[in-house]
């Protein structure tokens, strides 16, 4: 479970997150939907501990992020808005390094590597250096890296960006598998179809705050729209009229 509690964050005087509150349940896929600049990445970085909140706290698996940075990192798998690949390492070396960094060793390390290799269909790439990989291949490797230590929480920042059909399908399948295993998944996106297809819950973010949340159906109902896109536009941009209260997901 991930919980964000009254988190605010400014960058050089400009407020980016304003008293942000939400929580993510285990075994669910939650989408963080927002326009560019809404504060999605900042929010995710606070959860992973890369950024510190000016006020408020983030919790992962019940631990406060800023107090237990190392512990929460063992529970987190993160796919950032860049893949974070090392082009001079082979896929095997790359994954092996991150698995070791997460504290895996010996048989456990081997097992973890074998698992992601099969799960993400990496055999043909395994001993190749990642330089020159396609976007889909990069995403697969990056996802494998995030999953290699079997985190209980997975955070993805715009994971489907630039993916071809097959890769997108693999990603979706993987996420659904993880959900069934009880992993708490949070991903940011601005692609409605994907959000609709995957997410159990959608958090709509605008101007540094969650303007609404719920299942896509609930949101559509609440906004009186037929599609999530319409709902999003109304909720995110129509908010200036001050129609809505802050969303909260129980």
């Amino acid at each position: 479970m991930i919980r964000v509690n009254s988190v605010s964050k400014q960058f050089s005087g400009t407020p980016v997150l304003k008293n942000l509150n939400f929580s993510i349940a285990d075994g669910q896929i939650t989408a963080l939907l927002g326009a560019n600049g809404a504060g999605k990445t900042t929010c995710l970085r606070i959860i992973t501990g890369l950024l510190k909140a000016d006020s408020g706290h983030a919790y992962v698996g019940g631990l406060e992020v800023s107090k237990y940075p190392k512990e929460i990192r063992r529970q987190l798998g993160v796919v950032g808005d860049r893949e974070g690949l090392y082009e001079r390492l082979t896929v095997a070396e790359y994954l092996s390094f991150f698995a070791s960094a997460q504290g895996l060793a010996g048989d456990k390390l081997e097992f973890a590597l074998q698992s992601v290799r099969e799960e993400l269909e990496l055999s043909s790439l395994w001993n190749r250096r990642t330089k020159g990989f396609s976007q889909g291949e990069r995403m697969k490797v990056s996802l494998a890296r995030a999953l290699v230590h079997r985190p209980s929480h997975l955070i993805l920042d715009e994971p489907t960006r630039g993916l071809d059909v097959l890769a997108a399908r693999l990603l979706r399948r993987t996420l659904l598998n993880l959900r069934s295993e009880g992993t708490a998944i949070l991903f940011s996106s601005h692609i409605m179809a994907e959000v609709v297809e995957l997410s159990d819950t959608v958090l709509i973010m605008a101007n540094g705050t969650i303007v609404d949340s719920g299942t896509p159906g609930e949101l559509n109902t609440r906004s009186g729209s037929n599609s999530l896109e319409d709902s999003f536009v109304k909720l995110a941009y129509g908010q200036r009229a001050g129609k809505r209260q802050q969303g909260e997901v129980a």
Binding site: L50, E71, L76, V78, G84
Partner: peptide, 13 residues
């Protein structure tokens, strides 16, 4: 520049 540092920093190191 390659932003791989972000990934690195997210490790328990």
């Amino acid at each position: 520049e390659r932003m791989s540092i972000e990934t690195l920093l997210q490790q328990p190191l």
